[in-house]
Design a binder for these strands. Structure first.
Lengths: 232, 232
DNA sequence: AAGTGGTCTAGACCACTTA
DNA sequence: AAGTGGTCTAGACCACTTA
């Protein structure tokens, strides 16, 4: 008989849950009981259950125990490439052309709630990304001058703000909104479409850690033929 | 002096990396050395490093050791609610109206590569979701009859296929594509827009586990005012 | 008050990878 | 051949939560 590793235990418990033998709400045996059942140390069961909790399959609470979670409440975890990486990682030639550079207020709607009432200063950069000389992405970036040291000097015009930000603080967190909008005159010109044509928009706010103060906001526009693909 | 728990160690190492004192490519001390430095057991260091690896901050390999990862290669992990849950969880009244129900081939482009050459049978369901009596989402669902037992009988017309699928196998995996399309006559009629108006499209394929055979495909259309919001 | 999970320890064995 | 991380063990202490 094979040894019961934490992955076997995890798989076994996941199977009980998937098959509804342990339905949503079901109270799992305690770690001690499971350790006895699987003939292993409690730490081994603990690791299996901790991972199942990370995967939103069970809920765990001291004294109350571990319960099968209602699967319909699960949060989807969509994995995909960071916007600016898509071109180069598909083997295509990437080029960025800077269009504008100015100091302005950090976009209001997205200011962090905890910040002071005065408007935050931002460095705004606009540019277009090309994939094999085809316009691919129109990018507007606001870099918050209060939270991001990099503001003026170190920003060469030929490298994309999104990639520089990524280099600078690669362990980012933040929020993202995906929507549809009609092309402004400017967007239409640079993306090679007509004014009013539908575009796909990604709007990200990068923060210091989860829910921290904003570091930057990036608004990226794509032609309607663009798609976001990911797995979950 | 405070005890060094795995979270302290993890935070300390993350800080070294974020501050670039340990730059991308840097070889971390071995678990044994770190355990000595932090005056703790190797298992404690191991847990800290394992989590940092899960978060794509370091790469670990036996014998080669742990290295700081190039942050610009990180995969974004966007968390958001499952499509059909959005209405009810925002407190609005949800209603589903079934429109069509037929047997057809499982959509070709999305058939799994490992499956046989013959076309897969599917039960196709079409319907509209309402949020407070406003049309909200037009849904087309193909349920694969080879992999999903639930096909004909148990599908009452009044409950949404996406929610039933979620109830039935809540521990889903799969892939999703987000795109922009122009409304067909049918979509326009049911969503209350004009033919040719831009829509946001979510196209998901649910599979058995990661990369397994397809269980279902769902294509969801939304008016242009709809947005997808998530955090990462 | 009692039972649960969260975490740590000191040791062990081993698979894997490189030198 | 040697060093690394992956995993397990048997025990421990304790924070948290409920009954």
């Amino acid at each position: 008989m094979k040894k019961n590793g934490y992955q076997d235990i995890k798989a076994h418990i996941a199977a009980m849950i998937r098959s509804k033998q342990w339905p949503p709400g079901f109270l799992l045996p305690s770690e001690m009981d499971l350790a006895a059942q699987f003939d292993c140390a409690r730490a081994t069961v603990n690791r299996a259950l901790t991972e199942l909790a990370d995967e939103q399959i069970i809920d765990r609470k001291r004294k109350a125990g571990s319960r099968v979670r209602d699967g319909s409440e699960r949060i989807v975890n969509l994995k995909f490439q960071f916007p600016c990486r898509e071109v180069t990682s598909s083997g295509k030639a990437h080029k960025y052309v800077s269009l504008k550079r100015e100091v302005c207020a950090f976009p209001e709607a997205l200011q962090h709630e905890g910040t002071s009432e005065r408007a935050l200063d931002a460095l705004k950069l606009e540019g277009v990304h090309y994939s094999n000389d085809q316009p691919f992405q129109f990018e507007q970036t606001w870099i918050c001058r209060d939270t991001c040291a990099e503001s003026e000097g170190e920003m060469p015009d030929h490298s994309a703000p999104c990639l520089r930000l990524l280099q600078k603080s690669p362990y980012f967190h933040g929020s993202m909104t995906i929507s549809v909008a009609r092309a402004s005159q400017e967007e239409a010109r640079y993306l090679g479409v007509r004014t009013g044509d539908p575009l796909l928009i990604k709007d990200l706010v990068l923060t210091e850690g989860h829910g921290g103060p904003p570091v930057a906001r990036m608004r990226m526009s794509y032609r309607a033929s663009y798609t976001i693909a990911g797995t979950f």
